[in-house]
Design a protein around this nucleic acid. Structure first.
Lengths: 192, 192
DNA sequence: TTTTCCCAATTGAACGTTCATTCGGTAGGC
DNA sequence: GCCTACCGAATGAACGTTCAATTGGGAAAA
């Protein structure tokens, strides 16, 4: 095993530990000592990889972003018609969040906190960009309404996030029927 | 001025102070000493009204809820047709959030934090209930799609919140046109 | 091949600070 | 004289961060 892989492993352990603890206890309820313990490293080790707690949290956010990015890209069959591509797309995003609840809650906490202000990638939300790029073709080909692209992307994205949160908190049982219904609502809303 | 009103004034000052500081610095970046200073009271005084910092924050959340509740109820003209009532309703909600950004950000931080788990009013979200009650008549009269009421309410509510956040962060300039557009997307999505 | 040396990785106890909370005391209305 | 509202310095625990010490693997020297 190479030096680099070991390095990556420790870093990853710290990330995973932080992710879980922040989800459970929030930013302020997550002491570095606990992060260290859960990650199986010494407290000082964290500071070998990150300058401070804030840096760690901002880095974790970036790490989650890129993981999400990778997951969300593949599996799009461009030969199919735009409508069914939209539904597949929407549901895939939904499932990603449901399968990664820790990431969802961390990110939601993060973007609503003052951390987000200081976040370098704030402007270039790649996750939003993936959606935007997809919707763009829909608008250009006249399948979707003429509308500010960014605005439409955010609306679609927020519907996914909202539905995932509803599902995870079990406020409403989300089966295949409900999933289809919600996606349909958004589709009917944006289609020309 | 009655005893009660004086009491209300100090309490309110503490609430407002907390609200502003939490919005700016997050929960963990808001020490009680600062809350006290900004509210113009002694640190100990806060503990005359609240058992702990957590209690204060949960109480503030309840306080904001009831203020929102009051604001959002009035101004509905039941004689008009359902569609235009929906648009007025949607926009009124939007404007409330835009005019109370501190409340919006506080609540968004709150509901995504572990505080929310321990929140007694978690189940009975009155704000969601107002929306639900309104949409209910729409579903019953066949103007809206047949769909889980709670789910529809949450979707509508989240679209309002999302749009307000977009507007406040100026990611997209939200004028009357854009506002109408977004409301239209949601309306087209839920209408029968 | 063996020995030496170096440096990055790692440790965890110790430090200094920050912060929530406490508490003894004052003021004033009833 | 009692009770409620209020004060703010003092307290002690918790926490982020530091640092002197240790390890181990690999490169350079022998």
């Amino acid at each position: 095993m190479s030096q680099e892989e070991i390095l990556a492993e420790k870093k990853k352990a710290i990330f995973e530990s932080t992710l879980e603890l922040v989800r459970e206890n929030g930013f302020h309820g997550t002491p570095m000592s606990l992060v260290a313990k859960k990650a199986g490293v010494a407290a000082g080790t964290i500071y070998h990889y990150f300058d401070s707690k804030d840096t760690l949290i901002i880095a974790l956010h970036g790490y989650l972003r890129s993981r999400m990015f990778k997951t969300m890209l593949d599996g799009d069959d461009e030969t199919r018609d735009f409508e069914s591509r939209f539904f597949t797309f929407w549901k895939k995003h939904y499932h990603f969040y449901v399968q990664n609840p820790n990431a969802l809650y961390f990110i939601e906490q993060f973007v609503n906190s003052p951390y987000y202000e200081r976040c370098p990638e704030k402007e270039n939300d790649r996750c939003q960009n993936i959606i935007a790029q997809f919707l763009k073709t829909g608008i250009e080909t006249g399948v979707l309404k003429q509308m500010n692209l960014k605005l439409m992307s955010i609306l679609v994205h927020s519907s996914v996030v909202t539905t995932a949160k509803v599902s995870l908190t079990k406020k409403v049982e989300i089966g295949e029927t409900e999933l289809q219904q919600v996606a349909q609502v958004i589709w009917d809303g944006i289609k020309q």
